[in-house]
C-alpha cells in the first residue's frame, strides 16, 4: 500500500514536472556493467525543445546516461539500469514498455556516421517503412524530402538519391544519419559526440542544424568540445566519475559554475 501511494505521488509529481516542460526525467539513475558501477544515482531532467549538452572527461558516464534514455544499453551484455526514467509520463523501463516504440520516439545519432550500406533514399525510408508511417510511394517521397530538407542535405543529394549513402563525405553522412533519425518523427533526438569524426566545416554545418532542429525536437548531445557545448546548448550537465556534478543554464555553467570541478574541467585543468 505504502509503495503504491509512493508511486502515485511520484506519478503526480512527474505530471507536474512535465507541465513545466520536462520532456524526460531521470530519477536516481544508476547503471552497472556487470559488477562495475558506471553511474551513481543521477537525477537529470531534460527540458522540452531545448538542447542539453552532457560534458565531462572520458569515462565519466555521460554516454552511458545518454544511452539509458532510449534503452540502447539493453543491447550490452551484463548492463543493468536502476532508477527511473520517464518520457513525458511513461516509465521507459517499465516491463510493459515496447522498446521499438520507445526508440521511434527517442531517436539517436551516433559518434561515427553509420549510414546503412544502401541508397540515400533507402537510408531515410527504412525507419518510416518499418513503422508504417507512409502508405504510398508519394508519402514516402515526401518524408524523404522533408527529412533531408530538415537535415540541410536535400540540395546536395536530391539528384543522387539512389546512390549509396556510404559514398557521401563524412559530414554529409552524419547529416544523412540525422535525417534518418528525423524521418521517424521522434520527440527526442540523442546525439553521441556527433561531430567527433568531422572536420571543422562539417562540424559547423551540423551545429547549425542542431540549432534549427531545436524548434521541433528535444535534443540531448554528448560532446567533448567545450566550445561546441557553449555554441549549441541552452543547458549543460557536467558528469564526473559517474556522478552528475551539476546541471544548469549553459551561460551560467561556462561563466560562473557552482562546482569547482566544473570550473577546472572547463578551464582545461583536467580531462
Amino acid at each position: 500500500m505504502n509503495i503504491m501511494s509512493e508511486a502515485a505521488v511520484e506519478k503526480a509529481l512527474d505530471k507536474k514536472m512535465s507541465t513545466v516542460n520536462f520532456k524526460m526525467v531521470g530519477k536516481d539513475v544508476s547503471v552497472y556493467y556487470g559488477e562495475k558501477r558506471a553511474l551513481f544515482d543521477v537525477n537529470l531532467n531534460v527540458r522540452k525543445n531545448t538542447v542539453t549538452a552532457l560534458i565531462g572527461p572520458s569515462g565519466c558516464g555521460k554516454s552511458t546516461f545518454l544511452r539509458t534514455l532510449n534503452r540502447m544499453n539493453d543491447t550490452i551484455e551484463g548492463c543493468r539500469v536502476v532508477g527511473k526514467i520517464t518520457l513525458d509520463t511513461d516509465d521507459i523501463y517499465d516491463p510493459t514498455v515496447d522498446v521499438v516504440e520507445l526508440r521511434a520516439r527517442v531517436g539517436m545519432v551516433f559518434q561515427k556516421p553509420n549510414p546503412f550500406p544502401k541508397s540515400i533514399y533507402e537510408n531515410i525510408a527504412y525507419g518510416p517503412r518499418i513503422h508504417g508511417l507512409a502508405r504510398h510511394k508519394a508519402d514516402m517521397d515526401e518524408i524523404v524530402e522533408n527529412s533531408l530538407q530538415k537535415a540541410g542535405l536535400w540540395n546536395e543529394v536530391k539528384d543522387r538519391l539512389q546512390e549509396p549513402g556510404t559514398g557521401l563525405s563524412g559530414g554529409q553522412q552524419q547529416r544523412l544519419c540525422i535525417a534518418r533519425a528525423v524521418a521517424v518523427s521522434p520527440e527526442v533526438i540523442l546525439m553521441d559526440e556527433p561531430c567527433s569524426a568531422l572536420d571543422p566545416i562539417a562540424t559547423a554545418k551540423v551545429e547549425e542544424l542542431i540549432h534549427e532542429l531545436r524548434s521541433n525536437f528535444t535534443i540531448v548531445i554528448v560532446t567533448h568540445s567545450m566550445q561546441q557545448a557553449a555554441r549549441v546548448s541552452q543547458r549543460t550537465a557536467m558528469f564526473h566519475l559517474g556522478n552528475l556534478v551539476e546541471e544548469n543554464e549553459t551561460d551560467k555553467m561556462f561563466t560562473n559554475p557552482d562546482d569547482q570541478r566544473t570550473q577546472d574541467y572547463i578551464m582545461g585543468r583536467f580531462g
Binding site: 543491447t75 520507445l102 546503412f116 525507419g127 518499418i130
Partner: peptide, 20 residues
C-alpha cells in the same frame, strides 16, 4: 555501428538481423 543504426531507428531485433 550497423546494429546500432538499425536499433536506433526503432528496428526490432529480427528486422535488424534480416534487413541489415
Amino acid at each position: 555501428s550497423i546494429r546500432e543504426a538499425a536499433l536506433g531507428v526503432g528496428a526490432s531485433k529480427h528486422e535488424m538481423i534480416f534487413h541489415h
